[in-house]
Design a protein around this nucleic acid. Structure first.
Lengths: 227, 227
DNA sequence: GAGGATCCATGCGTGGATCCTG
DNA sequence: CAGGATCCACGCATGGATCCTC
């Protein structure tokens, strides 16, 4: 499945990621012998999966970091034509029934976010997909402030999930991380906890990082790396 | 022309203004024996002029405060359905040829803004004009910070006007007050100063208070009057 | 043409909906 | 159905254009 062996260190991963800098998606696909779809409309995950293959990610659809051996998660960072993050970033599925007893420290969300390789990518829709350039990747871990923000959002939201207030949750809650629907469509249903503790049906939910949060991450990276 | 005598003190003006609170534009027009237009589309100044007549404003089209005797300017403050100022506020015409030698202290803009009666007004377009309610009017003068902001904007903008940089001016300049076109249409022309000091043609310009600035004014008024 | 202003087209932000792969 | 994400409709913001009266 992976044509490329997984990286054995962060340094190796970052080096391989940097070898994509300035490269277009068309070139990258060509290196892997793949075709570029005309549009992402019916293939929204294509870019992420292309990068996974190029970089030798291992986890596939598992609830594990993309690079298991070195515990690093891969995330693309779609940029507007002004160079700013354009979309929220999916983190992981919200445990609608298994959340009770979990803590931030033990949570899937914290595991995913503790070490991330961000790969900036041109995402302006006026640029044909094959011509969009890959930027300079960087490794990130939350600093103390970010960790506190994420923890607080996670704790407040999971408190609601676990106490039957799921239906009160909307994407306006959470300063850095929010909960949003996550499914093929609204007819996909799972189970959750109701007001009286009973099982109710609900559509699946995901944790997402707000665009404002990833903008800060990118901005701080520029500050640190340039001046 | 004025059915109503001009107020002789701020107290009298404010009292008369407060007698409109909660009143609809339809009711107010009825008190004056006037008809309400169906829409402001071809009568954008109607509300302001209705209020002038009801309150006994005297200046008409002069470059003078609306209430000359007590040196108070009248401004409507159109509010969105959430109760926030919705549009920028016209202050006065920009002196495109007569600006040299003027100072902020002697300026028309400062004269207009030194004492203002703000009249909040429902302005959501889904509410028929006659049904829009008038809010609780209040008197305002710029505090020290506001005065500094206005002065700085005025000085920076007039510097450009006087040094032939008029064409570099756009509505993005100025933190509290901006310069924008002010004419029946783009074919209306006046004179201004060119790069080399020569006379050039230009369309007329006005000073406007940004919506963000009048939002702060309203917010501070609520803070002071309620808690 | 100064004074009373709002209109409107365009762009940005974003919450909820949706799409494909393995 | 978890993981890879983007799409898109709608609301807000606002810069430049415009309208009437006197």
């Amino acid at each position: 499945m992976s044509l490329v062996p997984p990286p054995e260190s962060e340094t190796e991963l970052l080096s391989r990621a940097r070898s994509m800098s300035g490269c277009s998606l068309g070139e990258l696909a060509a290196r892997l012998g793949e075709n570029v779809p005309e549009t992402l409309l019916r293939n929204k995950g294509w870019v992420g999966q292309l990068l996974e293959r190029y970089l030798g990610a291992t986890a596939g659809a598992l609830a594990e970091p993309d690079f298991q051996a070195i515990a690093v998660e891969l995330k693309t960072l779609p940029l507007s034509k002004r160079g700013l993050p354009l979309e929220s970033t999916y983190v992981c599925t919200v445990p609608l029934e298994q959340g009770i007893g979990q803590t931030w420290e033990s949570s899937w969300a914290r595991g995913k976010l503790s070490r991330v390789l961000w790969v900036p990518l041109e995402a302006d829709k006026t640029i044909p997909l094959a011509q969009r350039c890959i930027g300079s990747a960087f490794l990130w871990s939350p600093d103390e402030n970010e960790e506190q923000q994420l923890r607080q959002d996670w704790e407040e939201l999971m408190e609601m999930v676990c106490t039957g207030q799921l239906e009160k949750i909307n994407a306006r809650l959470g300063t850095a991380m929010q909960i949003r629907p996550k499914a093929a469509n609204a007819s996909v249903l799972g189970h959750a906890i109701g007001t009286e503790g009973e099982r109710i049906v609900s559509n699946p939910k995901g944790f997402y990082l707000r665009t404002s949060f990833t903008r800060k991450i990118l901005g701080q990276h520029y500050m640190l790396s340039e001046g």
